[in-house]
């Protein structure tokens, strides 16, 4: 069963990385990167590294993808090729796919015993609560820094 989930996640990972490499628009690349990070974190949970998976999700999707989106929003729209309608269609599809992928990663029997979502949360916040708090505060500080930079750019 594990090997089938591994095949599914790795196929999606390769497809997402090809999509990132070939998509012409920056916003599409960022959305594919978001989904790529979710797949990588489910791969970590499948490989029995739950903290690494959650830290990947927090740091990459919470920090780096958001910061890259902020950086992309500073580029003028005509150079960005921003297509609002297509993104509005693509985002719900990607969100539904995300909700389907994450429980598969957690269903692994090689993980932390018989994991499911509540036991994974209890495991993380009983063993690594301070580390998750530090990561969250660091990301909050980085977001504040990004807002400060944007305001200073607009003020010029």
């Amino acid at each position: 069963m594990d090997i089938l989930i591994f095949y599914a996640i790795s196929t999606l990972l390769i497809l997402m990385s090809i999509a990132i490499a070939l998509s012409r628009r920056l916003m599409h690349s960022l959305i594919f990167l978001f989904f790529f990070v979710v797949l990588v974190s489910s791969m970590f949970i499948l490989l029995a590294f739950p903290f690494l998976g959650v830290a990947e999700l927090i740091i990459y999707n919470g920090g780096i993808v958001v910061l890259l989106t902020v950086a992309a929003s500073l580029i003028p729209e005509e150079r960005l090729g921003f297509d609002r309608k297509k993104i509005l269609i693509a985002l719900p599809i990607l969100m539904i796919a995300l909700m389907l992928i994450l429980p598969f990663g957690q269903a692994s029997t090689t993980g932390v015993g018989q994991t499911n979502q509540p036991s994974l949360g209890i495991y993380l916040f009983s063993h690594y609560s301070l580390l998750i708090l530090v990561a969250a505060v660091t990301l909050l500080a980085s977001l504040m820094t990004a807002v400060y930079f944007i305001r200073s750019v607009e003020g010029e």
Binding site: S29, L33, L47, Y60, L68, A72
Partner: peptide, 20 residues
């Protein structure tokens, strides 16, 4: 920015390799 996104893929591939 596209260059940075590609570097993120490299970093994630290396992370999976280290973890495994």
């Amino acid at each position: 920015i596209n260059f940075v996104i590609s570097i993120e893929i490299v970093i994630n591939a290396a992370l999976i390799n280290f973890a495994a």
